[in-house]
């Protein structure tokens, strides 16, 4: 690990922009922070251009606060709304072709294991439902089949939000959306169930209405991925803009989903359970 890259040369410390001074002084790099500590430290995500009340950006904020060692974390994403917030995070973030994130992450993780055999470099995929469940599904599943030691986090807003509100595989049946003018004809893709039968050793389904659970899930998923294999966290991050509800209703929408199709669920192997109990 290297906090050196967040250590300014003394001579230049003064001339850094304010946000960097804050990151250096109060960022989460040197002592561990969690979701609980939000509001008391300088977050690694700076301002972002997400819409007011955006569930995705809340999800990003929460997961960014939950990273067990942000100074050794690399995030791999894909085009979509999540890009906008993730690009502002104070860590390495890669974003290339739509849907290739789990393949990029696999290559990256393996190379970092070669180059830093004695350091845990956490490679975390953070992407939307379109990137993971539609166009990148095969690459997602194969990273799980192959037991890559990466964490995959889906920010599920149940729509292609960034391109203007099209039906995604994770949209709910019956939803009328762009490209589904008569309502979606098939159910939400059961990616969470897929994860169970495709080799993930730990998985959580959660919503942004339960921030502490999000924090715990992300942290566990990353720690488990280091030791055992692929892990998956699916976070419901409702989109007020495309689903046309008022921005202050995001958490209510998420909360209601918790009683309905987005109940909290966790799965883990016994091995993993023992490991987590020890932590």
């Amino acid at each position: 690990m290297s906090t050196k890259i967040i250590t300014p040369v003394d001579e230049f410390a003064d001339c850094l922009p304010q946000e960097y001074k804050e990151l250096v002084a109060r960022g989460p790099y040197r002592e561990p922070r969690s979701v609980e500590d939000l509001g008391t430290f300088k977050e690694i995500i700076e301002e972002h251009p997400h819409c007011a009340g955006c569930g995705v950006s809340l999800g990003i904020r929460l997961l960014a606060a939950a990273l067990p060692s942000p100074e050794d974390t690399l995030i791999v994403g894909t085009p979509g709304c999540s890009f906008f917030g993730l690009v502002q995070t104070a860590l390495n973030y890669s974003n290339t072709a739509f849907g290739n994130q789990n393949a990029v992450a696999a290559g990256l993780k393996r190379m970092l294991q070669i180059r830093f055999p004695h350091v845990h470099k956490d490679v975390v995929v953070v992407a939307g439902d379109g990137g993971i469940a539609d166009i990148g599904l095969d690459l997602t599943l194969h990273s799980w089949f192959r037991q890559e030691k990466i964490t995959t986090i889906m920010l599920d807003n149940e729509v292609y939000a960034n391109t203007g509100g099209q039906e995604s595989g994770m949209s709910r049946q019956g939803r009328v959306l762009n490209m589904a003018p008569q309502g979606k004809r098939f159910p939400k893709i059961p990616v969470f169930e897929m994860a169970k039968v495709s080799g993930c050793v730990y998985g959580v389904r959660v919503t942004v209405a339960s921030p502490r659970k999000v924090g715990r899930a992300v942290r566990n998923a990353i720690l488990v991925a280091r030791e055992f294999g692929p892990t998956y966290v699916q976070i419901f991050t409702p989109c007020p803009t495309n689903m046309k509800f008022s921005p202050n209703q995001t958490l209510k929408v998420a909360k209601e989903a918790e009683k309905d199709h987005y109940t909290y669920e966790e799965f883990l192997s016994t091995e993993v359970a023992t490991y987590l109990a020890q932590l």
Partner: peptide, 14 residues
Amino acid sequence: FAVMAAVHGASLGG
């Protein structure tokens, strides 16, 4: 496609 994406990732890793 996945191969070329994965070598892209590996190369990013240095």
